[in-house]
Nucleic acid binder design. Structure first.
Lengths: 215, 215
DNA sequence: AGCAAATATTGCGCGCACGCAAGTTTGCGT
DNA sequence: ACGCAAACTTGCGTGCGCGCAATATTTGCT
């Protein structure tokens, strides 16, 4: 029921998708990101170059997808998995943290931080939680179709994006100005404090939803 | 002092930038967006095609830029212009509304809604307020360098994006499901209710800033 | 006024994204 | 079991984004 698409077909599609992104990552790691043409990836996955672009709409997307995998749906699932009595804000924060606390290879991390285009592609993946997350929040607040859930979901995505950005930012030059930028703590901490900013908005939305359901 | 760059040079740059985006819009309107090649725009503005890409990094960007113009900086300026005693949330909401309440040509609107790529490019412009806005909020909260301002700014941008998305969305098919989607009211209303969701977060941030400054 | 450094423009070339119109594979009804 | 329709893959062609190196223009300095 969850997978509407029949069977063998979808299976094959997922297989080539995985093959593509893993080939992409492997090649990028062993040759450096700039020495990998899209044709190489396609060939390594046993598919025509044209087909590659039926799965990924940019060269970087495949590489990055190998890292982020199925994060989007996992986050949404993690939110709905939390018991209903937990505060929405907490459920979200925990769900996010849970997904972004995978031990990442040092090699992969270096790969992403090095190339600017890859870095951007990686940051863009944060946006992809937006839709599934909106659905999850929507369901949790009851009342579906409200723009509230969409705005909240979009804000979460934005907050995650900012946190990742701080995390990935090079130490930079600390010379002249009185700007004291925190030297970017651990990712969980960054995520937590970024999401903390939004907490009041979640509480308010949740309270409003409760009032509505009691009427 | 505000414009560090000297004079004649920057002047010319701005001139060609304007020439490019206006040419882009004009051509897109009179031929339809798909019948305008980047070479045409460049020629109409009297520069080489290569130069075009020194100013805009995609074909759509120039067209859209003709509509959004200098919105980013205007929003930031509008925020800082509000007297300090006004609630941050109100200052922001008003500043945004003020900028998005220009009477837009019907032709232009149709142009954007018609082409999916243009629509996306237009939505992306909402993100561009992020940096100037972050600076403005940062200043208003005192204490610069905090991620709080960045998260708030990013959330505002996201909210605006959602509002625009709702506004531009085609009426769609309303046949089967019980989903009753509001037929997208006026843009100001949509913006207001989108930003209202974030209001509690702003209030909390502001209050926290005040407490900090009183210590 | 003149010259050297900084900055912008241009042509060239490569790789990439994607529409389109075949060709191929899978699924479903009878 | 068979065949038709829907879904997926592939090759081709076009326009685009951008790095690079040469060229032209502006600026600050003396």
């Amino acid at each position: 029921m969850t997978t509407r698409r029949t069977g063998l077909r979808e299976q094959k599609k997922q297989a080539t998708r995985v093959a593509l992104r893993e080939a992409a990552l492997r090649l990028a790691l062993q040759r450096g990101p700039d020495n990998v043409r899209v044709d190489d990836i396609a060939e390594a996955a046993g598919v025509s170059p044209r087909t590659y672009n039926n799965y990924f709409s940019s060269r970087e997307q495949a590489i990055v997808a190998a890292v982020t995998a199925e994060r989007e749906s996992r986050v949404a699932a993690a939110v709905t998995a939390r018991p209903a009595h937990v505060r929405l804000a907490d459920a979200l924060t925990e769900a996010i943290l849970e997904q972004y606390t995978e031990p990442r290879d040092r090699d992969v991390l270096l790969l992403i931080t090095t190339s600017p285009t890859l870095r951007d592609a990686y940051l863009d993946t944060a946006t992809m939680v937006e839709h599934p997350l909106a659905a999850a929040i929507d369901q949790r607040l009851g009342e579906s179709g409200t723009p509230t859930a969409r705005v909240l979901a979009a804000s979460v995505a934005a907050a995650v994006r900012v946190a990742l950005q701080q995390w990935l930012q090079p130490p930079a030059v600390p010379p002249a100005t009185g700007r004291l930028v925190v030297p970017s703590g651990s990712l969980p901490d960054l995520l937590r404090s970024a999401l903390a900013v939004l907490t009041p908005a979640f509480d308010a939305a949740e309270e409003q939803a409760q009032q509505r359901s009691q009427r």
